Computed example of a mutant assay.
Amino acid sequence: MPSRAAVVLAILIAGATAAAVPASADDGRIGIRLLEAPVDRRDDPRARVYVIDHLNPGTKIERRIEVANNAPTPRTIELYPAGAAIEDDAFTIAEDRTANELSEWISLDRPSVDLDPYSRTTVLATVDVPAAAARGERYAVVWAQASAPTGSPGAGNVGVVHRVGIRVYLDVGPGGEPPSSFEIGDLTASRRPDGVPTITADVRNTGERALDLSGSLNLVDGPGAMRAGPYPVTLGTTLAPGTAGQVVVELDARLPDGPWTAELTLASGLLKETSTVTLTLPPPGASTRATAGDGRPFLGWTLVGVAVVALVAAGLHRDRIAARRPRARRASAGVRPAGRTRP
């Protein structure tokens, strides 16, 4: 038997918890979810799962949070805030209980709760912004944590720590909330060695709040007027204000190469943008790039061609009319063409 038990940390940054379900072993499962959102964000799906708000310095907010024990044994669940950041296009959590400026502004009305099997309770989280706080957006997590001790059923000699949390996005500054916006750039079609095609889109956060990107891609106008999709965007891309990143969509390996019209729709909360391009899926190991706004290029060239033909035809017609006019004027003035006599 080893002298020290290994410890496994199971982490889930959750916005909502599933309903309590029976467990076959004492696995220590826990859940957490936000119970309320600001009135002006009630239609924002992100604000229903994350704490997202804007506060002036010297003000505070309170949020009710539900904590659940989804295991068949009693649990003591610890509650605490910790720091977070946005790095490499992802919401990144600080190690263990490492604090940052925002997490130090967050307090919970209880440091822990004791829950019976398959039970839940409500705790109150308060975010109190100091009067001297500088302008800017900050990130943190409110954590719920429970441990399955070494030797418990299903754990053996491994101590398992289960941790679930709710993200906090807080912008601080005088006045109203700064704007949120983003732009979709080029799309790149690639095919992995296993034959699975992917679409990668460049995205830039042009606003002043962080974005959590989701969405889907539809393929239309394919060979034989085929349609395919929607294919969901792989989740996990979070962009800080003023930064750029990428989202990826995995397609079906059985799709023909195309050409296709790709319609990508991305959203972050209530924000939504769509990009349409025409592209062909490449062979394995290759990629092709399409610029946003290049959707249906063949139609555009057709319209240009029709316009050019129409202009040329109009010019020829005008030249024919101009060539007839001098003869008509000479005839009306009694001038006869040279070399000809009248009977």
Rank of each mutant, 00 (worst) to 15 (best):
P2M: 14
P2L: 11
S3N: 13
R4D: 09
V8I: 12
L9H: 13
G15W: 07
A16T: 15
V21F: 09
S24G: 08
S24P: 04
D26G: 06
R29G: 04
G31D: 05
I32S: 06
A37Y: 12
A37N: 11
D43G: 12
D44Q: 09
D44I: 08
A47N: 06
Y50A: 15
I52F: 05
D53Y: 07
R64S: 14
V67T: 07
A71N: 15
P72Q: 13
L79T: 10
F91P: 09
F91D: 09
I93D: 07
E95F: 06
D96V: 04
R97Y: 00
N100G: 02
N100M: 01
N100Y: 00
L102A: 02
W105Y: 12
S107A: 12
L108R: 08
P117N: 02
D128M: 03
A132K: 10
A134I: 07
A134G: 12
G136I: 08
A144M: 04
A146H: 12
S147A: 14
H162I: 11
V168A: 08
S180P: 00
S181R: 08
R191D: 01
P193T: 10
P197A: 06
T200Y: 03
V203W: 00
V203H: 00
L211T: 05
N218E: 13
A225K: 13
P230Q: 07
T234N: 09
T234P: 00
L235G: 12
T237L: 04
A240W: 00
A244T: 04
A244W: 00
A244S: 15
V248A: 11
V249D: 01
R254M: 07
R254Q: 13
A267K: 14
S268N: 03
G269R: 06
L270E: 13
K272F: 06
V277G: 05
G285S: 02
R289S: 09
V304A: 11
A307R: 08
L311I: 10
A313F: 01
I321T: 10
R324S: 12
R327M: 04
A331V: 04
S332H: 10
V335K: 01
P337T: 03
R342P: 02
